[in-house]
Design a protein around this nucleic acid. Structure first.
Lengths: 223, 223
DNA sequence: CGCGGTATGGGGTCCACCACCCATATGCGG
DNA sequence: CCGCATATGGGTGGTGGACCCCATACCGCG
């Protein structure tokens, strides 16, 4: 039942955002394009990763700030797969640090939620073609430099925090005590305290309240 | 050019959200309903208030977290008008404090961005009819009590915090220790601790990290 | 005038936080 | 292979946070 004009199958998209309303809106925008189609949704990073085990998609659109598992953590997981789909990060903030993190984790694009819908569509298409799409608003000199280095194959330092430290930081900022964090990650309280000390030292901060503000600024958690 | 079946003019809606993508999605959802129509958009609270000076609308849908002027501040301004439109708050968080603030400021409804689109439509219609719509997820015993009191015309204290407590909260959230706060306000450390305890009790929170997040949400400090 | 709320200050207790010290295992790159 | 970073776990001790007790003083309201 194909029409005479050849219509290739639209690119399949997994959409992950913790707000159903946002998912609905983005889906309406993407489904309106003939070459794009949302085939699955996820409410957090863990759901997104789980969905990929049963559903093959061409592109994953990931919100960064999500409960349980952030978009960054999900991107890390997704990049470990044999044939990873393209990944487009969707962020509330034009925070340079998480932009770098996203690129390092293999994301193909990074767009802000403040963009117009045509830009989102363009970003999806660019990501599907394998091009790096960056919303102009975040294209600073730093970013250009970073992309140049990537092209030359140089290793880029911007590690900031390790994966484990990110997890601990998120829980600290959400108000969890060391004991609760230890239980959540099934490690000892001492190890949690060690991670916290490392984070504090690396970020040059003194206590949890500053870490909380940092995590919010970085978009790691919701205010 | 009216059709034979009488179609009353759809309710006019002003939509305020700082993310163009979210505005687009919500507009698609609302415009799909024959009795609802978005006639204006705003990217922050100040724009929303300004738009109301030139455009009469039946309902204003306000995101709470917006730059320059938050949805709460905008709701306060809107309520001061002679014939204020209905106001529906759109929030990322099921935070009771926000919810109470919204009701106190005259908002007719409060829905979370995690709701489905049908719920958003239902909330808009309820607000237009003058009914209080509350997304079930935030309907706690506290909320019921509050609404009951409002119905009886009782004055509700909800000032939340005293002036002194606000000062202390601000300093706590900025990362100051009790000793530093005591020095800044020229009072004793014990008094600072007493204030902190009062704030924690009144907001139902446990520690400083939660206070930090609250202060950021309330716009008391910058992230 | 008493009563409640606010602001002030002090006492003590318990525990979490934070800063040092230490160790072992793993994996990666020069 | 050797060092370095990461992740794990432990010990020790100081400080501050969180939660009790107590009191005094002021101010406004019924």
């Amino acid at each position: 039942m194909t029409t005479s004009t050849s219509t290739p199958a639209p690119a399949s998209i997994l959409l992950a955002d913790d707000h159903a309303l946002v998912r609905r809106g983005v889906r309406l925008i993407l489904d309106a394009e003939p070459d794009l189609g949302v085939v699955a949704e996820a409410g957090d990073g863990a759901e997104a990763v789980a969905a990929l085990r049963t559903t093959e998609v061409d592109l994953v659109v990931l919100d960064i700030a999500m409960p349980r598992m952030t978009g960054l953590q999900a991107a890390r997981e997704i990049a470990r797969r044999r044939e990873p789909p393209k990944v487009l990060m969707l962020s509330m903030h034009d925070n340079e640090q998480y932009f770098f993190e996203s690129l390092k984790l293999g994301a193909s694009g990074y767009v802000l939620k403040s963009v117009a819908d045509e830009d989102l569509v363009a970003a999806c298409r660019a990501a599907l073609r394998g091009e790096a799409f960056v919303y102009p608003g975040v294209m600073s000199a730093l970013v250009r430099d970073y992309l140049d280095r990537l092209r030359r194959g140089e290793t880029v330092p911007t590690t900031v925090l390790t994966e484990r430290e990110d997890q601990v930081l998120k829980l600290i900022a959400e108000g969890a005590t060391s004991k609760e964090i230890a239980a959540a990650l099934t490690i000892s309280v001492k190890t949690v305290e060690k991670h916290r000390a490392s984070i504090l030292a690396r970020l040059g901060m003194r206590d949890r309240t500053q870490l909380t503000r940092y995590a919010i600024r970085a978009g790691l958690i919701e205010p």
